[in-house]
Lab assay of single mutants.
Amino acid sequence: SEEEEEEWRRAKERGEEIIILGILWKPNDEEAERRIKEALRRV
């Protein structure tokens, strides 16, 4: 969703871990980033 995407962007800017759509994303975690982008597209 729009607000999840916004939340994720803010976490990326701050360089902090975030759990979004049930996926743990850490800074520079390209695999998780790809999965999150896929999940955001499906929503």
Rank of each mutant, 00 (worst) to 15 (best):
E38L: 04
E16Q: 10
E2H: 15
K37M: 13
I23F: 04
L21Y: 08
E17M: 10
E3Q: 13
E3V: 14
E4S: 13
E33Y: 05
E17L: 09
I23R: 00
L21S: 04
I18S: 03
N28I: 01
E33Q: 03
E7D: 12
E2V: 14
R14N: 11
W8A: 03
S1T: 14
R41V: 09
W25P: 00
L40V: 03
R34P: 00
G15C: 15
I19Y: 13
I23Y: 02
R34T: 11
V43Q: 14
E7G: 08
E30G: 06
N28D: 12
N28G: 15
G22C: 14
W8Y: 07
I36Q: 01
I19P: 01
E30I: 12
R41Y: 10
L40I: 10
E4Y: 15
E5G: 05
E30Y: 11
V43C: 08
E38V: 04
E30P: 10
E17Y: 09
E2G: 14
E30S: 09
W25F: 04
D29F: 04
L40F: 09
E16M: 07
R35S: 06
W25G: 01
V43R: 15
I36G: 01
A32Q: 02
E6K: 10
K26L: 07
I36A: 01
R42F: 10
E2C: 08
W25D: 00
W25A: 00
R9N: 10
E7R: 15
E30L: 14
S1I: 14
E7P: 04
R34M: 10
I19T: 13
R35I: 08
L40W: 05
I20Y: 05
E2F: 15
V43D: 09
L40H: 03
R35K: 13
E31K: 03
R41G: 10
E33D: 09
R42K: 14
A11S: 07
G15K: 06
E2Q: 14
E16I: 11
I18H: 02
I23L: 07
R35A: 13
L24A: 04
R14G: 04
W8T: 02
G15F: 07
I20P: 00
W25E: 00
I36H: 02
W8N: 02
E5I: 12
E38T: 03
L24W: 04
I20L: 05
R34F: 10
K12C: 08
G22H: 03
E38A: 07
L21G: 02
E16Y: 10
W8H: 02
P27A: 03
V43L: 15
E17A: 12
E16H: 11
E30K: 12
E4K: 11
A11G: 03
E4Q: 14
K26A: 09
R42Y: 11
G15H: 05
E2P: 12
N28H: 09
S1Y: 15
E30Q: 11
A11I: 14
K12L: 06
G15A: 04
E6D: 11
R41S: 10
S1V: 15
A39Y: 06
